[in-house]
Write a protein that binds this DNA or RNA. Structure first.
Lengths: 181, 181
DNA sequence: CTTATGTGATTAGGGGGCTAATCATAAGGC
DNA sequence: GCCTTATGATTAGCCCCCTAATCACATAAG
């Protein structure tokens, strides 16, 4: 779901104007920031539109992909805690996602033999068929979105985004509290 | 609030591997896509962290900024419909946002004199003082996030993001249905 | 004037995030 | 063995987003 954002980005001249009122405002930094958030949202929307048409949310898609990745490896299952950790959501949220996926017969909860506190979550055959149906179109949408960029531009973009992401990780590291809770 | 996303991006080799299974998967396009969404989320988090500490959400901040922009111009107020339109959310959502802002004494609802269906929403002095307090730190955080990029790199990044955003607007234009509902 | 239609705001109900609290089971110290 | 502590999953309750339905008022047609 897109973040709430100004639909019309402030124009550069407006930023220069506002900078007079707020000395700490750096117009070029703000411009990058606003464009980054908006483009991220637009890109998200392109794929989310497809998911919604198929009755999927981004959260449910992520869970299915994590389990699909597991299924391609050796282990066929995963605990809710591991899924929450890898998806970057709380365990409470993962409980809710698994609830709706189970209701839609996409996953199965199975008790763990070794530790009776734990569950193991598995994809159903229905989920595998569903993913095989939607993934090609998903990738096509991503390709289509990126067609305006040459291979060279893609490398540049990834490099510049990486600089920002690395800086963000320094400035406000993802808290480890969730993992300990 | 960040989109639910894989915390650990698939590495490039994994994308190449997965491409064998899905012919429609273009590794470089996917790489840009995943980095864009993740970096957008990280950037969002840097500012949202600050907002949350001040008891603000992104949605409420956007509404305050829209009204603040109005207040800097001539008109001191705005209808909920206009706010919803400019923020890119539904009117129902805007009703909820205004509810919580009014509860926190940040905005006032006033009946319109000319049309008794309409309201006008105004910032309170408390909101103005609040914005004056938090905005400098908000801009500082954005500057800090962008320090790794030179002015040249910023221009490049904005240009490349613009290409994607333009493509997204072509591929899946923002529906006008919300405005008509 | 009366009625149909359009438009502003709201409400009702659902999804999906979150935190904090709860409950069952494990594991370790005495 | 028993009690404390830690950890897995869940529940309860909040916020913010959505769509669809509702209500009040304006406006135009007959």
């Amino acid at each position: 779901m897109p973040h709430l954002l100004l639909k019309d980005l402030p124009r550069y001249e407006c930023l220069l104007e506002a900078a007079k009122q707020f000395p700490s405002l750096d117009p070029s930094a703000c411009e990058v920031f606003l464009n980054l958030l908006r483009t991220g949202d637009e890109a998200f929307r392109v794929t989310d539109e497809h998911f919604q048409a198929k009755g999927l949310s981004q959260g449910r898609f992520t869970v299915l992909m994590l389990l699909f990745d597991k299924a391609c490896g050796q282990s066929h299952s995963c605990t809710p805690a591991e899924l929450a950790d890898r998806a970057g959501v709380t365990r409470a949220t993962m409980t809710g996602l698994i609830d709706t996926l189970e209701r839609d017969a996409m996953v199965l909860r199975k008790p763990s033999a070794s530790d009776r506190r734990m569950l193991s979550v598995e994809l159903t055959p229905r989920a595998l068929a569903f993913l095989a149906e939607i993934l090609p179109e998903h990738f096509r949408r991503i390709n289509n979105l990126m067609t305006p960029l040459s291979e060279n531009e893609r490398r540049t973009l990834v490099r510049l985004l990486g600089k920002i992401a690395a800086r963000a990780a320094e400035v406000s590291p993802v808290s480890e509290t969730a993992a300990h809770a």
